[in-house]
Write a protein that binds this DNA or RNA. Structure first.
Lengths: 213, 213
DNA sequence: GAAAAAATACACCAAAAGGTGTAATTTTAA
DNA sequence: TTAAAATTACACCTTTTGGTGTATTTTTTC
């Protein structure tokens, strides 16, 4: 019999962890060596029994997925991380892959896919949820040609402040710029994103996590 | 041996369903008789093998938790529903209890709590996650004194459309009302919520899931 | 069936946002 | 070391939002 794969599970929903544990205990080639409910806890517990594979929910509090991944791959380069997410947030995939994850799974996939993913990343292969693969592919060549990348640094900065309910005047005061300049950036950003008003801009920003860009 | 409790699971994350199934299969007094990934599917599949208890994620697409609960308790008054949620959205608890759920569980609780909840509701008792009980208690007297409950039906309807980036004029056309009326509702809602502009209104609406209210 | 709440609609007016275009300066990258 | 991109700033003008108040009608609730 082949050697068991040592697995660590991190998710802020204990019920989900319990479920996955039970699910994986049905196999004889996976052993669960640890669990955590947030990023900080992962960092703390990881070294106790070093896992081969880490199932990491990227929507956890305290430390988010990207930060945790960076910290972990720095300290434990051999760890294979599978990012778990609820949303089809494909714009994050490349970011997470760059941060060092080997797999990217949506939670609305089935048991079988999970097992496949664990097996694949353990062999140092990359595994993406089928729904995500198409994005990853045209990602190879076009890198990050998402509409967001058209925005300049200043524009993103200003959008963040708009989402925080600041008016142009307030933003201008904060950044020591003319209110007219802020308005120009705001309008330019909206033209690039093809958005028609503040409501859609805020929506867009939240959906696309502009805030942790 | 006591009769097995027949359980139906509804959650939009297949992986979660698979986990819970495996978890519950470890017990000998629960039998899973069905599963679904959205509210509509629950309605369709429910009658095939009538469950005693329904585990219902309230954040599903197609039909949300409250709507699904209403439909189900109307057609199957004997069904015991346990609402599952990720967030500590206590302002929804009373609403869901009124809609007919017998239990309310947060996903960040453990396996044991889940089993306790299933057992309790099957005996027609009410079960709430310990974290929620305090809210339910002062809920008895203060009902739902969340700031949201100050909003009228019309105001909520209009906020939803604002979040969808509609202008007052567009909303007026859609609802066959005067633009001035829409503006009045908008301003009244904002005064009640103590919000100063569209950006904060959209933020608030998204954070508080106004959309499935 | 009276009182209260909600929905409708307006006046009047101020502030903010949004559309289009020009232009000088600064930063970045080829 | 230039060409390109980004940042800053303004003009001119329209539309949309937002604040405060009044008032009539409709719906709910006690």
């Amino acid at each position: 019999m082949k050697k068991k794969i040592k697995l660590f599970i991190a998710d802020d929903h204990q019920m989900f962890i319990d479920g996955i544990k039970s699910l994986l205990n049905e196999t004889d080639w996976i052993e669960i060596v640890g669990e955590a409910n947030n990023g900080r806890e992962v960092i703390e517990k990881m070294h106790i029994r070093m896992p081969d594979v880490l199932l990491l929910d990227i929507g956890m509090p305290e430390l988010n997925g990207i930060e945790t991944t960076f910290l972990l791959t720095e300290n434990y380069p051999s760890i294979k991380i599978i990012a778990l997410t609820m949303y089809d947030d494909h714009h994050r995939v490349s970011k997470m892959l760059k941060a060092g994850v080997k797999g990217y799974l949506l939670k609305n996939t089935s048991k079988n896919e999970l097992l496949e993913a664990i097996e694949a990343v353990n062999k140092d292969e990359t595994y993406l949820s089928p729904q995500l693969e198409k994005f990853a592919l045209n990602n190879e060549k076009t890198e990050d040609q998402s509409i967001i990348s058209k925005l300049t640094k200043r524009e993103i900065e200003i959008i963040k402040l708009i989402v925080q309910s600041s008016t142009n005047k307030e933003i201008a005061d904060k950044l020591f710029l003319s209110e007219l300049t802020i308005n120009t950036h705001r309008k330019n950003a909206m033209r690039k994103l093809e958005l028609k008003n503040t409501a859609s801009l805020v929506q867009f920003a939240i959906e696309n996590n502009i805030n942790d860009l």
